[in-house]
Design a protein around this nucleic acid. Structure first.
Lengths: 168, 168
DNA sequence: CTCGGTTGTGTTATAAAGTAACATTTCCGG
DNA sequence: CCGGAAATGTTACTTTATAACACAACCGAG
């Protein structure tokens, strides 16, 4: 958890250079797997690239369609095995409340992530907020509960979509 | 969110009077629906009672089996419609990470709930921790995000199951 | 009470998400 | 270039959830 509370998480602007998001994610995945001695195979890379096509969580069957459209025949287990690998390596997260998967911008260190998910544009912003993490840890400790995994998913409206819907 | 941070949430003891949990939950549901002018029908009451048979989140199809065992024929929509109603009224919560449903001990006021879920005994303890709520709200506000729903689910080991597995 | 609309339920079929089991292929070190 | 481990292909299936439409129960207005 390298972040500090003053870090400024921001929803990605529609104008941002997304091509670079994808490229950077793939490069980091590449070097991370090399360092760990595990194999980022073609299928796995394809699935990761498909996930990074947007900042929206993507369902497994949408990924399946994506593979098929690009001529790579596949069945559900293909996708789920790739997802399993990517999850294990921390390259993606699963958004439980959507049964969907999203790229992790910080794959080098395993962490508890939290998500702000816009119900309008469906963009998911990953936070790694120490404050939330600690609040959860405190409550758990108070109950004598040993934390293994956290799921924190917040649904609502991102700044941009608030402006749109309020026309303000 | 009536709780204060010093409130002592506790995992239910195996010896606790569970019959009373159920009875109290049903009575509160009854009076709450009467007050709100909505109908706690037989099917809805049955589903609520089945959910309260334990402190573990229960899947929709387990509830379906429960209905059938007690001679009340039912198909999936029956259960899902009852669940929808109970969720709307705040009488139960959905645990996203388990696709399962659990009774709410505080149905009178709508709230963001958080759950500690034991991976061994599957008991779910509902917290209504202002500290977590505020940490999330702060982060969201910092990003200009308008919160509508929170999902906070913590997986791990409850005190009792820690003692068992460590044989300590 | 009784008509008629709203609300709730029954029923069938199907969509969406995920996994089990086993055959086949690819990779890579000896 | 051989052999075992890792990855992929393939088929079938389970679990979770919803759509669509028919029917029945409830309840207030007349």
């Amino acid at each position: 958890m390298p972040e500090n509370p003053s870090e400024g998480w921001r929803f990605p602007e529609p104008t941002h250079n997304h091509r670079q998001c994808v490229q950077s994610a793939l490069e980091r995945a590449e070097s991370l797997c090399r360092a760990r001695g595990c194999r980022l195979t073609e299928q796995r890379r394809r699935v990761l690239a498909l996930i990074w096509q947007s900042h929206r969580p993507v369902g497994a069957y949408a990924l399946l369609d994506g593979l098929r459209e690009s001529g790579h025949n596949a069945a559900p287990p293909t996708v789920y095995r790739a997802l399993e690998f990517l999850l294990e390596q921390g390259l993606i997260h699963r958004v439980e409340s959507l049964n969907a998967y999203v790229g992790c911008p910080q794959p080098e260190e395993h962490h508890h992530a939290q998500f702000l998910v816009c119900r309008a544009c469906e963009t998911a912003l990953e936070l790694d907020a120490r404050a939330i993490d600690e609040a959860v840890a405190d409550c758990a400790a108070h109950c004598g509960f040993k934390v293994e995994r956290q799921t924190v998913e917040v649904r609502g409206l991102c700044p941009r979509c608030q402006r749109k819907t309020h026309h303000g």
